[in-house]
Amino acid sequence: MRGAPWSRTTRAAILTTVAAVLLAACGSGGNYPATQVPPSTTTPPAKVPTPASATCTPDFLTSYAPLPSLDTNLLTSDKFAAEMTKRGRLRVGVSADSMLLGANNPLTNPSTIEGFDIDFARAVAKARFGDENKIQLVVIPAADRIPALMTDRVDMVARNMSMTCARWGQIAFSAEYYQAGLKLLVAKGATDTTFDALKASTKSVCAPTGTSTIDFIRTQGVTVVGAATHTGCLVLFQQGKVDAIAGDDTVLAGLVAQDPYAVVPKATALTVEPYGLGFNLGNKALVQFTNTLLDQMKADGRWKAIYDKWFAGPLGPAPAPPVSKYGRP
Protein backbone atom coordinates (compact mmCIF):
# COMPACT_ATOMS: atom_id res chain seq x y z
CA MET A 1 0.00 0.00 0.00
CA ARG A 2 2.80 2.36 0.97
CA GLY A 3 5.18 1.40 -1.74
CA ALA A 4 2.67 1.45 -4.51
CA PRO A 5 2.28 5.19 -5.21
CA TRP A 6 6.06 5.74 -5.41
CA SER A 7 8.08 4.91 -8.43
CA ARG A 8 11.54 3.45 -8.01
CA THR A 9 12.95 6.56 -9.65
CA THR A 10 11.39 8.85 -7.08
CA ARG A 11 12.67 6.79 -4.20
CA ALA A 12 16.15 6.67 -5.71
CA ALA A 13 16.10 10.45 -6.13
CA ILE A 14 15.11 11.00 -2.49
CA LEU A 15 17.73 8.55 -1.21
CA THR A 16 20.45 10.12 -3.33
CA THR A 17 19.60 13.60 -2.04
CA VAL A 18 19.61 12.42 1.57
CA ALA A 19 22.96 10.70 1.06
CA ALA A 20 24.41 13.83 -0.54
CA VAL A 21 23.26 16.00 2.36
CA LEU A 22 24.65 13.47 4.81
CA LEU A 23 28.03 13.51 3.10
CA ALA A 24 28.08 17.28 2.89
CA ALA A 25 27.27 17.60 6.58
CA CYS A 26 30.16 15.36 7.58
CA GLY A 27 32.71 18.11 8.25
CA SER A 28 36.34 17.20 8.50
CA GLY A 29 37.08 18.42 12.05
CA GLY A 30 40.39 18.52 13.86
CA ASN A 31 42.61 19.19 10.87
CA TYR A 32 44.53 22.20 12.09
CA PRO A 33 47.18 24.14 10.19
CA ALA A 34 50.67 23.32 11.45
CA THR A 35 51.92 25.30 14.42
CA GLN A 36 54.29 28.00 13.24
CA VAL A 37 57.87 27.75 14.49
CA PRO A 38 58.98 31.21 15.59
CA PRO A 39 62.31 32.32 14.15
CA SER A 40 65.15 31.87 16.60
CA THR A 41 66.03 35.18 18.23
CA THR A 42 69.58 35.82 17.17
CA THR A 43 71.95 37.94 19.18
CA PRO A 44 72.12 41.46 17.76
CA PRO A 45 75.29 42.14 15.81
CA ALA A 46 78.04 43.75 17.82
CA LYS A 47 78.06 47.50 17.61
CA VAL A 48 80.93 48.88 15.63
CA PRO A 49 82.98 50.76 18.20
CA THR A 50 84.16 54.27 17.60
CA PRO A 51 87.65 54.14 16.09
CA ALA A 52 90.27 54.83 18.70
CA SER A 53 92.16 58.02 18.19
CA ALA A 54 95.75 56.93 18.01
CA THR A 55 97.39 59.93 19.60
CA CYS A 56 96.45 62.20 22.45
CA THR A 57 98.10 64.68 24.80
CA PRO A 58 99.17 63.67 27.36
CA ASP A 59 99.66 60.20 25.86
CA PHE A 60 97.59 57.23 27.00
CA LEU A 61 100.33 55.88 29.28
CA THR A 62 100.35 59.03 31.37
CA SER A 63 98.42 58.90 34.66
CA TYR A 64 97.96 61.18 37.66
CA ALA A 65 100.92 61.76 39.98
CA PRO A 66 101.01 59.41 43.01
CA LEU A 67 100.34 60.56 46.57
CA PRO A 68 103.30 60.97 48.95
CA SER A 69 102.27 57.87 50.95
CA LEU A 70 99.50 55.29 51.41
CA ASP A 71 97.98 57.24 54.31
CA THR A 72 94.24 57.02 53.69
CA ASN A 73 93.83 60.45 55.28
CA LEU A 74 95.43 61.83 52.15
CA LEU A 75 92.38 60.77 50.16
CA THR A 76 90.32 63.87 49.60
CA SER A 77 86.89 63.59 51.17
CA ASP A 78 85.01 63.85 47.87
CA LYS A 79 81.79 61.94 47.35
CA PHE A 80 83.62 58.89 45.99
CA ALA A 81 85.89 58.61 49.02
CA ALA A 82 83.03 59.24 51.44
CA GLU A 83 80.78 56.61 49.90
CA MET A 84 83.54 54.06 49.74
CA THR A 85 84.41 54.62 53.41
CA LYS A 86 80.73 54.18 54.23
CA ARG A 87 80.54 50.91 52.31
CA GLY A 88 83.75 49.71 53.90
CA ARG A 89 84.78 47.68 50.86
CA LEU A 90 86.23 48.08 47.41
CA ARG A 91 83.92 47.16 44.54
CA VAL A 92 86.01 45.81 41.69
CA GLY A 93 84.83 44.88 38.21
CA VAL A 94 86.59 41.65 37.27
CA SER A 95 86.41 38.68 34.96
CA ALA A 96 85.42 35.32 36.38
CA ASP A 97 86.37 33.26 33.37
CA SER A 98 89.75 34.54 32.19
CA MET A 99 92.02 31.84 33.53
CA LEU A 100 95.24 33.17 35.08
CA LEU A 101 93.95 36.78 35.03
CA GLY A 102 90.63 36.46 36.86
CA ALA A 103 88.71 33.20 37.02
CA ASN A 104 86.46 31.42 39.42
CA ASN A 105 88.20 28.41 40.90
CA PRO A 106 85.45 26.02 41.99
CA LEU A 107 88.00 23.61 43.46
CA THR A 108 88.70 25.96 46.35
CA ASN A 109 86.16 25.99 49.15
CA PRO A 110 84.43 28.39 49.13
CA SER A 111 85.06 28.91 45.42
CA THR A 112 87.06 32.06 44.82
CA ILE A 113 87.92 34.24 41.88
CA GLU A 114 91.69 34.31 41.50
CA GLY A 115 94.34 35.45 39.08
CA PHE A 116 96.88 38.11 38.18
CA ASP A 117 94.33 40.97 38.03
CA ILE A 118 92.61 39.80 41.21
CA ASP A 119 95.88 39.91 43.17
CA PHE A 120 96.33 43.57 42.20
CA ALA A 121 92.73 44.31 43.18
CA ARG A 122 93.22 42.65 46.57
CA ALA A 123 96.43 44.65 47.07
CA VAL A 124 94.47 47.87 46.53
CA ALA A 125 91.76 46.71 48.98
CA LYS A 126 94.39 45.88 51.56
CA ALA A 127 96.07 49.28 51.19
CA ARG A 128 92.74 51.07 51.38
CA PHE A 129 90.96 49.10 54.15
CA GLY A 130 93.78 47.12 55.75
CA ASP A 131 92.24 43.81 54.69
CA GLU A 132 92.49 42.21 51.25
CA ASN A 133 89.07 40.61 51.79
CA LYS A 134 87.34 44.02 52.10
CA ILE A 135 86.53 43.59 48.45
CA GLN A 136 83.41 42.96 46.42
CA LEU A 137 84.20 41.27 43.13
CA VAL A 138 81.65 42.26 40.50
CA VAL A 139 81.86 39.99 37.49
CA ILE A 140 81.46 41.96 34.27
CA PRO A 141 81.87 41.13 30.59
CA ALA A 142 84.52 43.04 28.67
CA ALA A 143 82.01 45.38 27.07
CA ASP A 144 80.71 46.47 30.50
CA ARG A 145 84.04 47.69 31.86
CA ILE A 146 83.57 51.33 30.89
CA PRO A 147 79.77 51.53 31.50
CA ALA A 148 80.23 49.95 34.95
CA LEU A 149 82.74 52.65 35.89
CA MET A 150 80.77 55.51 34.35
CA THR A 151 77.58 54.52 36.18
CA ASP A 152 79.52 54.01 39.44
CA ARG A 153 78.56 50.34 39.76
CA VAL A 154 82.18 49.60 40.63
CA ASP A 155 85.01 51.66 42.12
CA MET A 156 87.70 50.04 40.03
CA VAL A 157 88.09 47.69 37.09
CA ALA A 158 90.86 45.11 37.18
CA ARG A 159 90.11 43.19 34.03
CA ASN A 160 93.06 43.20 31.62
CA MET A 161 92.06 46.59 30.23
CA SER A 162 94.32 48.32 27.71
CA MET A 163 94.99 52.02 28.17
CA THR A 164 93.90 53.92 25.05
CA CYS A 165 93.36 57.55 24.13
CA ALA A 166 89.67 56.94 23.44
CA ARG A 167 89.11 55.37 26.86
CA TRP A 168 90.90 58.20 28.65
CA GLY A 169 88.05 60.38 27.47
CA GLN A 170 85.58 58.26 29.42
CA ILE A 171 87.48 56.85 32.38
CA ALA A 172 90.75 57.28 34.26
CA PHE A 173 93.62 54.76 34.39
CA SER A 174 96.27 53.99 36.95
CA ALA A 175 99.86 53.80 35.84
CA GLU A 176 100.64 50.82 33.60
CA TYR A 177 100.86 47.62 35.66
CA TYR A 178 101.58 45.14 32.89
CA GLN A 179 102.48 45.18 29.24
CA ALA A 180 100.80 42.50 27.19
CA GLY A 181 100.92 41.92 23.43
CA LEU A 182 98.29 40.86 20.94
CA LYS A 183 98.71 37.34 19.54
CA LEU A 184 96.68 34.65 17.83
CA LEU A 185 95.44 31.32 19.13
CA VAL A 186 94.91 28.58 16.53
CA ALA A 187 94.24 24.86 16.48
CA LYS A 188 97.17 22.51 17.01
CA GLY A 189 98.71 21.72 13.63
CA ALA A 190 96.92 24.57 11.82
CA THR A 191 98.84 26.04 8.90
CA ASP A 192 97.28 29.51 8.88
CA THR A 193 98.84 31.15 11.91
CA THR A 194 99.07 34.82 10.89
CA PHE A 195 96.47 37.44 10.01
CA ASP A 196 97.70 37.47 6.39
CA ALA A 197 97.34 33.70 6.06
CA LEU A 198 93.91 33.74 7.75
CA LYS A 199 92.81 36.55 5.44
CA ALA A 200 94.03 34.69 2.34
CA SER A 201 92.07 31.56 3.28
CA THR A 202 89.01 33.65 4.38
CA LYS A 203 89.04 32.21 7.89
CA SER A 204 87.31 33.77 10.86
CA VAL A 205 88.86 35.24 13.99
CA CYS A 206 87.06 35.74 17.29
CA ALA A 207 87.52 38.50 19.84
CA PRO A 208 85.34 39.88 22.66
CA THR A 209 83.13 42.77 21.70
CA GLY A 210 83.90 46.19 23.15
CA THR A 211 87.65 45.56 23.29
CA SER A 212 90.62 47.23 21.65
CA THR A 213 91.45 43.78 20.25
CA ILE A 214 88.33 43.58 18.12
CA ASP A 215 88.96 47.14 16.91
CA PHE A 216 92.39 46.04 15.78
CA ILE A 217 91.40 42.81 14.03
CA ARG A 218 88.70 44.65 12.09
CA THR A 219 91.55 46.45 10.34
CA GLN A 220 93.22 43.15 9.36
CA GLY A 221 90.77 42.09 6.65
CA VAL A 222 89.79 38.80 8.28
CA THR A 223 86.23 37.68 9.06
CA VAL A 224 85.56 38.97 12.58
CA VAL A 225 83.28 37.14 15.00
CA GLY A 226 82.39 38.72 18.33
CA ALA A 227 81.66 37.03 21.67
CA ALA A 228 80.94 38.33 25.16
CA THR A 229 84.25 37.14 26.60
CA HIS A 230 87.43 35.38 25.47
CA THR A 231 86.08 32.20 27.00
CA GLY A 232 82.99 32.66 24.77
CA CYS A 233 85.48 32.70 21.87
CA LEU A 234 87.00 29.45 23.15
CA VAL A 235 83.53 27.83 23.07
CA LEU A 236 83.06 28.97 19.46
CA PHE A 237 86.58 27.72 18.65
CA GLN A 238 85.83 24.30 20.17
CA GLN A 239 82.55 24.13 18.28
CA GLY A 240 84.39 24.82 15.03
CA LYS A 241 82.58 28.11 14.47
CA VAL A 242 85.78 30.20 14.39
CA ASP A 243 89.28 29.30 13.22
CA ALA A 244 91.34 31.50 15.50
CA ILE A 245 91.13 33.73 18.57
CA ALA A 246 92.88 37.06 18.83
CA GLY A 247 93.85 38.27 22.26
CA ASP A 248 96.57 39.35 24.64
CA ASP A 249 99.23 36.74 25.30
CA THR A 250 98.10 36.69 28.95
CA VAL A 251 94.51 35.86 28.05
CA LEU A 252 95.43 33.30 25.40
CA ALA A 253 97.70 31.54 27.90
CA GLY A 254 94.61 31.04 30.07
CA LEU A 255 92.67 29.59 27.14
CA VAL A 256 95.50 27.24 26.13
CA ALA A 257 95.55 25.98 29.71
CA GLN A 258 91.94 24.77 29.24
CA ASP A 259 92.31 23.17 25.82
CA PRO A 260 95.30 21.00 24.90
CA TYR A 261 94.34 21.29 21.22
CA ALA A 262 94.81 25.07 21.17
CA VAL A 263 98.22 26.68 20.67
CA VAL A 264 99.64 30.19 20.52
CA PRO A 265 102.37 30.08 17.84
CA LYS A 266 105.53 31.90 18.77
CA ALA A 267 105.48 35.28 17.09
CA THR A 268 106.22 38.85 17.94
CA ALA A 269 103.24 40.64 19.43
CA LEU A 270 101.18 42.48 16.82
CA THR A 271 100.33 45.35 19.14
CA VAL A 272 101.47 46.47 22.55
CA GLU A 273 98.70 46.37 25.15
CA PRO A 274 99.48 48.40 28.27
CA TYR A 275 97.24 47.28 31.12
CA GLY A 276 95.94 49.88 33.52
CA LEU A 277 93.45 49.66 36.38
CA GLY A 278 90.33 51.61 35.45
CA PHE A 279 88.51 54.22 37.57
CA ASN A 280 85.70 56.69 37.31
CA LEU A 281 86.95 59.87 35.66
CA GLY A 282 86.00 61.86 38.77
CA ASN A 283 87.74 59.55 41.25
CA LYS A 284 91.20 61.09 40.74
CA ALA A 285 92.22 60.67 44.39
CA LEU A 286 91.81 56.88 44.28
CA VAL A 287 93.87 56.75 41.05
CA GLN A 288 96.67 58.66 42.73
CA PHE A 289 96.43 56.41 45.82
CA THR A 290 96.63 53.29 43.60
CA ASN A 291 99.60 54.67 41.69
CA THR A 292 101.47 55.10 44.97
CA LEU A 293 100.75 51.46 45.76
CA LEU A 294 101.73 50.23 42.29
CA ASP A 295 105.06 52.06 42.48
CA GLN A 296 105.76 50.40 45.83
CA MET A 297 104.83 46.97 44.49
CA LYS A 298 106.98 47.36 41.40
CA ALA A 299 109.92 48.37 43.60
CA ASP A 300 109.69 45.91 46.49
CA GLY A 301 109.29 42.66 44.54
CA ARG A 302 105.55 42.14 45.15
CA TRP A 303 104.88 42.83 41.47
CA LYS A 304 107.36 40.10 40.41
CA ALA A 305 105.92 37.68 42.95
CA ILE A 306 102.45 38.08 41.48
CA TYR A 307 103.78 37.69 37.92
CA ASP A 308 105.72 34.57 38.83
CA LYS A 309 102.67 33.07 40.54
CA TRP A 310 100.55 33.25 37.38
CA PHE A 311 102.67 33.72 34.28
CA ALA A 312 106.19 32.38 34.88
CA GLY A 313 105.06 28.99 33.59
CA PRO A 314 103.16 29.87 30.41
CA LEU A 315 104.93 33.15 29.47
CA GLY A 316 108.48 32.72 30.78
CA PRO A 317 110.52 34.60 33.36
CA ALA A 318 109.32 37.96 34.62
CA PRO A 319 110.29 40.99 32.57
CA ALA A 320 111.10 44.27 34.27
CA PRO A 321 107.90 45.89 35.57
CA PRO A 322 106.55 48.63 33.26
CA VAL A 323 107.72 52.10 34.17
CA SER A 324 105.02 54.37 35.57
CA LYS A 325 104.50 57.57 33.61
CA TYR A 326 102.99 60.59 35.32
CA GLY A 327 102.23 64.17 34.40
CA ARG A 328 98.51 64.27 33.71
CA PRO A 329 97.09 67.50 35.07
Binding site: S40, T41, D97, M99, N104, P106, G232, L255, Q258
Partner: peptide, 22 residues
Protein backbone atom coordinates in the same frame (compact mmCIF):
# COMPACT_ATOMS: atom_id res chain seq x y z
CA UNK B 1 87.45 23.31 37.49
CA UNK B 2 87.91 25.01 34.11
CA UNK B 3 86.20 28.41 33.63
CA UNK B 4 85.11 27.55 30.08
CA UNK B 5 82.46 25.34 31.70
CA UNK B 6 80.62 28.41 33.00
CA UNK B 7 80.50 29.83 29.48
CA UNK B 8 79.05 26.60 28.12
CA UNK B 9 76.40 26.74 30.82
CA UNK B 10 75.46 30.37 30.20
CA UNK B 11 75.35 29.65 26.45
CA UNK B 12 72.99 26.76 27.23
CA UNK B 13 70.72 28.96 29.36
CA UNK B 14 70.71 31.76 26.81
CA UNK B 15 69.98 29.31 23.97
CA UNK B 16 67.15 27.79 25.96
CA UNK B 17 65.52 31.18 26.37
CA UNK B 18 66.13 32.47 22.85
CA UNK B 19 65.58 29.21 20.96
CA UNK B 20 63.52 26.63 22.83
CA UNK B 21 61.11 28.63 24.98
CA UNK B 22 59.70 30.78 22.12
Amino acid sequence: GLPVGATYLSNASAGLRSGALP
